[in-house]
């Protein structure tokens, strides 16, 4: 068993533990490469099926290719697709692109708040109708008690402290000083009412592992990751006002792997194109304590 196979088997085991032990489970799908690789792992774990809904938080500022790609795969793979959005903040133009708030507050409103609301069932839940291809309000208001997310430990400092099964309190907060011990493949699967758990099957993966896996398994990924002839591509995907492409001529997962291993990105952090990380040291950790993915 090689390194990638070991990572793959462990992730599948974690996905199955979550499915067997956590009622009302959902999985976050940001459309990015990590959560798309995770989606592929889920289809492997459940032999072609994804037996829980996928949640996408739409900030309205996502790059348009991302939504088109999301809906294409959701229809093709028969996914239960739920979209959450903070319509109040968008209507009141309380966003960074509108010039009303800073980047961090914008993330907090459009991502963290929208996510909290879709999880609790108190906010907007739009569900993909497979016969029309359109989205309709989801009548279910049942809170999700478990959320699978594709974060990796090597992304940045606070994520390296995460657990595979990471409890969140009733306010979605993360108490870093009092995390449950995790050992011998046993995870926290008992919860007090009102709390929920984040499950992180990709915690041990690195950026290059994800790309190698995408290459090996031919996982379809959004075209934004690849140079379309202009010598630029996205290394990390987010909202267009806060995410910049990098100079690169990589056109395939293989070329990206080469770039990460021996090429220009060998020693450069992945999220260096994410503006919100640079505003203040420790920002992402603060967002995460508050419920950010």
């Amino acid at each position: 068993m090689d390194h990638l196979e070991r990572l793959e088997n462990r992730s599948i085991h974690l996905l199955r533990e979550a499915y067997s032990c956590i009622p009302n489970l959902a999985m976050l799908w940001s459309i990015g490469k990590d959560s798309t690789a995770l989606l592929h792992l889920a289809r492997k774990a459940f032999f072609g099926h994804v037996p829980f809904p996928l949640i996408h938080i739409d900030t309205n500022y996502k790059i348009p290719e991302m939504t088109a790609y999301r809906d294409r795969l959701a229809l093709e793979w028969k996914l239960t697709m739920i979209v959450g959005r903070n319509d109040a903040a968008l209507a009141q133009k309380r966003t960074f692109p509108d010039g009303a708030v800073d980047r961090i507050t914008c993330c907090r409103l459009l991502k963290t708040q929208a996510l909290k609301d879709v999880l609790s069932g108190q906010g907007l839940r739009l569900k993909l109708n497979h016969s029309t291809g359109g989205y309709e309000p989801d009548p279910s208001r049942e809170p999700y008690t478990g959320v699978i997310a594709g974060i990796r430990a090597d992304e940045e400092g606070s994520r390296s402290k995460e657990r595979y099964f990471s409890p969140r309190d009733t306010e979605s907060r993360w108490d870093l000083g009092d995390q449950p011990p995790e050992f011998w493949d046993q995870y926290k699967t008992d919860f007090a009412p009102g709390t929920h758990v984040r499950i992180h099957p990709l915690l041990d993966w690195r950026e290059v592992d994800v790309w190698e896996y995408i290459d090996r398994e031919a996982v379809p990924t959004v075209s934004l990751y690849y140079d379309q002839g202009e010598g630029r591509r996205y290394r990390s995907l987010g909202c267009h006002p806060c995410t910049s492409p990098v100079e690169s001529t990589a056109r395939t997962p293989k070329e990206i792997v080469a770039e990460l291993r021996t090429g220009k990105f060998k020693d450069i952090a992945e999220r260096s194109g994410r503006a919100q990380d640079l505003e203040d040291r420790g920002t992402l950790e603060e967002l995460r304590r508050d419920g950010y993915m």
Partner: peptide, 17 residues
């Protein structure tokens, strides 16, 4: 890498490196 830790001067949790 975390603020908490540097202020307390001790590692709070297991970091994977």
């Amino acid at each position: 890498a975390l603020k908490d830790e540097q202020s307390q001067g001790i590692t709070i949790d297991v970091a994977r490196i």
